[in-house]
Design a protein around this nucleic acid. Structure first.
Lengths: 144, 144
DNA sequence: GGATTTGCCTACCGTCTTCGTAGGGATGCG
DNA sequence: CGCATCCCTACGAAGACGGTAGGCAAATCC
């Protein structure tokens, strides 16, 4: 029940791009240095973000990566969905969501509800929010 | 980003208890048969649920397990927290939530918000809801 | 009291995923 | 040309996950 490093590094990488691409694209090497992560690993991740349309790249000297969309158009949820594969909490055995065991299918709805709650929250946070640094906290006591 | 089988099996097991313990405790063997899961594995899980105070047990012939609390007092969130270890989505390096990298700490709040959203949703579903079978759906379109 | 039935506990292990690394190619700039 | 940068494939070590094996402990029934 942990997020993988893919989502975390990926999000930090894309945030780093947002913060440092005022004058031209940002090199992976620099991001890796700033974030303290391996270049090779980030290279692999950025390819997926590029394929998803969040990032555009330029090769050669003075090359690098930058965001392909406005800050408001990229939500953390979208990033995570790309990097984490699917964000469903469980896999269903049967075809088309039909489970073999009925109790299973009952609990399955619970997991889907939990996943949905997480998605909704993550989709509500855009890069713009992140850059501005105002993640407003959901009010609720005693949850962890 | 998957729930482990521990949470899923555990929740199904505890739901099974709720449904079959009208006359006396339920044997692990029976639960395993109904749920199609290994006896040994469930034994291991039930111990943790017992330690957490959700289940009480009796040994010997006509022994078995049953819930130690009323249905309304056991939420799915509580079960999952027991079986899944902690339900935080990321670990923080620094002591007391203080991260080394500031950007990291920024994104960290995002993960905590997501985890909180999931917790809140799971805590809102009790075994009583599950037995009655009415998991009301959160309204929101296009999330997966 | 002995046999049986159930839960209780520890140790181990195979498999898969995660988290990278290695090495090289392709492309653009100067 | 020579260099910087992105792009791609393949491989590998470590750990988690999911489960099994074997046996001990207590309660019940006869």
């Amino acid at each position: 029940m942990k997020l993988t490093t893919r989502s975390r590094y990926g999000t930090r990488m894309i945030l780093d791009m947002a913060q440092h691409s005022q004058n031209g694209p940002v090199r992976i090497k620099d991001i890796a240095a700033r974030q303290g992560v391996s270049v090779k690993y980030l290279e692999k991740l950025v390819r997926e973000l590029k394929a998803a349309g969040f990032v555009k790249s330029r090769r050669g000297p003075r090359g690098g990566h930058e965001l392909a969309l406005p800050l408001e158009a990229i939500s953390v949820g979208a990033i995570v969905r790309v990097l984490e594969g699917d964000l469903t909490l469980v896999d269903c055995d049967g075809p088309d969501g039909a489970c073999i065991r009925s109790a299973d299918c009952l609990t399955r709805r619970v997991w889907m509800e939990a996943a949905k709650a997480m998605h909704i929250r993550l989709d509500a946070i855009t890069l713009a929010d992140l850059v501005r640094g105002d993640i407003k906290e959901t009010p609720a006591g005693e949850w962890c």
